[in-house]
Amino acid sequence: MTTDPFIAMRRITKVYGEGATAFQALKGVDLNVAQGDFIAVMGPSGSGKSTAMNILGCLDVPTTGEFIFKGVHIETLDRDERALLRRRYLGFVFQGFNLLARTTALENVELPLLYRGDPKEQRREAAMSALEKVGLDRWWDHTPAQLSGGQQQRVAIARAIVTNPDVLLADEPTGNLDSARSVEIMQLLASLNRDAGITVLMVTHEPDMAEFAKTIVHFKDGLVDRIEAAAGGVGAH
């Protein structure tokens, strides 16, 4: 039985460019993520939080250091192996929704299953179930233009969870929403964390949104500056 944490970053560095123009985005990050945690990642622009999230999402690799996910050293995997891991274990939610404009909510949610080669009936059933989880099953035949911003983000979340991921990575998921819709989306993420057991990693610059998490990780100058429990503890309720 492994004693490794669910996700671990060990002395992670990330350097872009070479020689005089080289920029060190991460300077030796250490971070453990427990299964079932809901972590808000915060920090000023250029602090390294987005770079760290790209590595956590297996979209990028560290320059040096160890990145361990479920006992596997991700830094040793090639591009195809990382893509396979993303498809199997990770879901992504972005600030800009990234929905296909001319397709229905249901078809948008089906996409990851289509890429995976799942049969049509199975895709449809899983997509409807995901839409139901985000409260949009009655809007399955609506295109993004027929949905509000908050509803579009719910479709994006349904698309991210349709593969039953272990981890949901959300990059400024409320960045394009008004405050009421933002609270709705954060309550949805908190319920997915609490009820479905999905580990959530979220970048946000909004302190009130971060309070929905269980843990807040602050980045500064390419390092983890401090880690604290979310004072509001909203995510726990």
Rank of each mutant, 00 (worst) to 15 (best):
T104C: 08
W139Q: 15
Q153R: 09
R102H: 13
Q152M: 13
L106Q: 13
Q152H: 06
F92V: 02
L114A: 12
T143R: 15
D118A: 15
E121Y: 03
Y115R: 03
R116L: 11
G91F: 02
I157W: 02
V93S: 05
I157C: 05
V109P: 00
G149V: 03
A158I: 04
L99V: 08
F94K: 06
H142T: 00
P144L: 11
I157D: 01
A158Q: 02
V134Y: 02
W140K: 14
G149D: 07
E110T: 09
L113N: 05
S148F: 07
L131T: 06
G149C: 04
R154V: 10
Q151K: 06
E121A: 15
L111D: 00
Q95C: 12
A156F: 10
L114V: 15
R102D: 14
Q146V: 06
K120T: 10
Q122C: 03
T143L: 09
L136D: 10
E132I: 00
I157E: 02
T143D: 01
R154K: 13
H142D: 00
V109I: 10
K120A: 14
F97E: 06
G150F: 06
D141M: 06
Q146E: 15
L106D: 04
A101P: 13
D137W: 04
L99Y: 03
V155Y: 07
R116Y: 01
A130L: 12
